[in-house]
Write a protein that binds this DNA or RNA. Structure first.
Length: 817
DNA sequence: GCGGATCAC
DNA sequence: TATGGTGATCCGC
């Protein structure tokens, strides 16, 4: 039919426009018809897949995610009433596992070093963890969960997924008695003294608990109009038969049994259930009803970062593409399929459609086991070897407990600059004893020590991991071969003996043999070291080689934080990380600042200092962009349905905004916005940017948009001479600078910026003048794309702005009819 | 199989 | 003064 063809053409046009490739003059350079078709094919492929996913959407399961509130802290508070009204955290001076909600108001959170937390909240009480206790409580909770799904999946001590589909079916016919629970209120004399809100068996008092289960201990309102709500009769309560009621019942029982509260999410799949459990936390629950519209509505404005699996790195990469919400993730599906691996874009597509696992997979077999330890600097080789040996012993012990043996030994080293290295070796037959593991690990460690010779390895962490556990098939095979071996009356040693023999020999190998590339003097020094090492190797290792941290001394208190507790008004805070004053910001904003400060390891202080100016510029740049994007994204309501193609094109409306944003960025950079942010938190990003980089967008009138970055000779050598090929225009890029390359790809993907430039007769000068093409093979494209991705798509330049498209709308259905 | 990276808890 | 430990997975090589 003709109309079908028209639709198809429109679709093509829109697709090209969306990808910035529809303008023959601007976008088509380097793109022949064949390549355009390729891109279209790619996009249609994505949409076909999206359709398939949509059609296979399964809404028949009821998945529940249960998450205990501030679990470790709650247990500690329960067991020590003195802690109940105080800000507490569980962990150590160096790292906190969790904090109670009181402490969270000060910005004290899990994964924060305790000493930083103390600066935020000087009265914070840090309780050392007591995992045995948490395990016991966890067990109690799990006993309850098993009533609803015997195959529930525990993710940790405080988190689990349940599939209550079957329970729900059975429950429909249950008599009231079976859904009736008696309320235990604890000591009634004590209860009399408490206010209604405080009449709680829970140690947690949540001010902002959702209304459905507000006052713990009196969990349900008797006057509720909702049929769904449980009926409270005297000292008992009857729960209904809906999923919501089941989950209320679970939470009620957990609280009755453990005096602890839990939050829960109910949804048709695990991905959504997990997000839901966070929604009304603490002590709340949320359900996404099992229909497509409900899922769609929930997903619409959901920030992708909320989804389990999207971490801060992915968040940032996607943000660089203008993607913050799930809707935007869906809109950019075709682009994502070009930029990311299949696994990744499939994952993204699932997320953006609100899809996830509908059944709980049984835990597979363990794939690795490891031990690692952080300590204060250890530079002496002999201490490093002792430590390694200790770790191997621990690992062997753990392996023995599970009766495991593996073939791959991996060591992990982190130096004082937080640079992490792993080195692995796979041996022919399984190892499990401390000696066997150490024999392999020692070699790996030695290689690393030798590689840096004469400089010592300044370590702050060492780890040993074992993997490649044989599966049943392997075991059988191995057994057969051993039997065959013995039956052949061969004189050879058992396999593990061979390994030992080999490594024992290696242990005494002469340094020359290991490092033939080293100088004579190096070898001599190595020899000396090794003779020393050999002398030491038989020493018993009962001395403490892991240096424990020094006792923490309470740092000077910052009174600002005391005041902060009861006030959300703007005031001056001092960041405990960068020590800079943060004026006129709310407590919340301040906490975000601290988060930013804490984010990212303080890698290579030298880099920060040697490129301070650039670094700072980049930081400001980056942040001003993200800020801008965030606000823009949320102020424009994007109306996009999940399968409709309303998003095919961005309007020209946003073109000027984009051009403006480049200017704005330059200005912001000059004005030095965000001067209070520490540069060290962002070194990783800045690293790639410290190369020569001049971007000039010049028009015929001589007007130009110019960006220049100074070249740091120190970094020049780090820039390899890669031939970067843009995956969009398929042109080889002159630059080897990754950030510049990223920018090119970005601009290429948003060709309307170029169009705008063209309107002003502004041409980018960094485009290759010769039209040297790459092979154009999809492999190549994939390769370069991946490189972009893996080096961090930290695009800090022109970013597209998402605006509700006003172009013609098409649906997939029409296109495929 | 190795090594770097990311992620969750 | 000081920033964790364990396990899994992905990806390029």
């Amino acid at each position: 039919m003709d109309s079908t063809k028209e639709k198809s053409d429109d679709y093509k046009d829109d697709l090209l426009l969306r990808m910035g490739l529809n303008d023959n003059k601007a976008g088509m350079e380097g793109l022949d018809k064949e390549k355009i078709n390729k891109i279209i094919m790619e996009a249609t492929k994505v949409d076909r897949f999206a359709m398939e996913l949509e059609q296979s959407r399964d809404l028949n399961n009821t998945i529940v995610h249960i998450d205990m509130d501030a679990f470790y802290a709650a247990v500690e508070m329960r067991d020590n009433p003195e802690l109940k009204k105080k800000p507490i955290a569980v962990g150590s001076v160096s790292m906190l596992s969790t904090s109670n909600y009181h402490a969270r108001r000060f910005g004290v959170r899990a994964a924060m070093p305790g000493f930083i937390a103390k600066r935020l909240c000087p009265q914070l009480i840090i309780v050392p963890p007591n995992f045995d206790k948490y395990r016991a409580v966890s067990k109690e909770v799990k006993e309850i969960l098993a009533d609803y799904d015997p195959n529930f999946m525990a993710m940790s001590l405080d988190e689990a997924y349940l599939n209550i589909t079957k329970h729900l079916q059975e429950r429909q016919n249950w008599p009231e008695d079976k859904r009736k629970y008696f309320i235990k209120t604890g000591n009634s004399a004590e209860n009399d003294k408490l206010t209604e809100h405080e009449l709680s068996i829970s140690p947690l008092l949540f001010e902002d608990s959702p209304p459905d289960l507000q006052a713990p201990g009196i969990p349900f309102q008797t006057n509720s109009e909702e049929q769904n709500n449980p009926q409270i009769l005297q000292n008992s309560v009857v729960f209904g038969t809906s999923a919501e009621e089941v989950v209320k019942e679970i939470r009620f029982r957990i609280e009755q049994k453990t005096t602890l509260t839990a939050s829960a999410g109910i949804a048709p799949n695990t991905m959504l259930a997990k997000v839901c459990s966070d929604k009304n936390k603490p002590n709340g629950q949320y359900q996404i009803l099992p229909n497509r519209q409900a899922v769609k509505d929930f997903i619409k404005d959901l920030p992708i970062r909320k989804i389990s699996g999207i971490g801060k790195v992915t968040e940032k990469m996607l943000k660089a593409l203008g993607i913050i919400t799930c809707t935007e993730l869906y809109q950019q599906r075709a682009l994502l399929s070009l930029l990311f691996s299949e696994t990744s874009w499939h994952y993204f597509l699932h997320i953006s459609l609100g899809l996830g696992s509908t059944h709980l997979e049984r835990d597979g077999e363990r794939k690795s086991m490891s031990v690692e330890r952080t300590f204060s600097e250890i530079s002496k080789a002999e201490e490093q070897y002792s430590l390694c040996q200790e770790l191997c012993s621990e690992l062997a012990h753990d392996l023995q407990k599970e009766g495991l043996k593996g073939r791959t030994v991996t060591i992990k080293l982190k130096n004082v600059n937080f640079e992490v290295k792993t080195r692995a070796s796979t041996v022919s037959s399984v190892v499990s004893t401390a000696e066997e593991i150490f024999a392999v690990a020692k070699d790996l460690l030695r290689t690393e020590i030798d590689a840096d010779f004469p400089h010592p390895l300044k370590l702050r962490l060492m780890g040993v991991r074992i993997s490649s556990f044989p599966n049943e098939e392997d075991k059988k095979h191995q057994q057969r071969s051993i039997i065959g071996f013995l039956q052949a009356r061969n004189q050879a040693l058992p396999a593990s003996g061979c390994v030992l023999e080999k490594t024992d020999k290696d242990q005494f190998i002469k340094p020359q043999e290991i490092t033939p590339q080293k100088s004579f003097f190096d070898k001599k020094r190595s020899e000396m070291k090794w003779s020393h090492q050999d002398a030491c190797k038989c020493e018993t290792l009962n001395k403490q080689s892991v240096h424990t941290s020094q006792p923490f001394q309470v740092s000077k208190m910052n009174e600002n934080f005391e005041a902060a507790e009861n006030s959300d008004s703007c005031q001056i805070f001092t960041c405990p990380v960068c020590f800079r004053e943060q004026e006129n910001i709310s407590l919340e904003a301040f906490n975000r600042h601290v988060d930013a400060c804490l984010r990212g390891p303080s890698v290579s202080e030298e880099h920060a200092s040697s490129s301070e100016i650039n670094t700072k510029e980049n930081v400001h740049h980056s942040l001003s962009l993200s800020e801008k994007q965030t606000s823009e994204t949320h102020e424009n309501n994007i109306e996009v349905t999940l399968v409709d193609y309303e998003d095919l094109a961005e309007t020209r409306d946003n073109i000027s905004t984009k051009a403006e944003s480049i200017d704005a960025l330059n200005n912001k950079e000059r004005e030095g916005e965000y001067p209070s942010l520490p540069s060290k938190s962002f070194n990783m990003e800045c690293f790639h940017q410290n190369s020569s980089c001049t971007v000039s967008l010049e028009n015929q009138d001589g007007r130009s948009l110019n960006r220049q970055k100074s070249l740091q000779p120190h970094f020049q050598e780090m820039i390899t001479d890669q031939a970067l090929v843009c995956p969009v225009c398929n042109l080889k890029q002159k630059t080897s600078d990754l950030s510049l390359f990223n920018m090119h790809v970005d601009v290429c993907l948003n060709k309307d910026i170029i169009q705008e430039m063209r309107k002003d007769k502004v041409n980018p000068v960094n485009q290759p003048k010769d039209n040297s093409r790459s092979t154009g093979s999809s492999d190549k494209v994939q390769k370069m794309v991946t490189r972009t991705k893996r080096t961090g798509l930290t695009t800090k330049y022109s970013r597209s702005k998402k605006i509700k498209p006003n172009h013609s709308k098409h649906t997939l259905d029409l296109f495929f009819k």
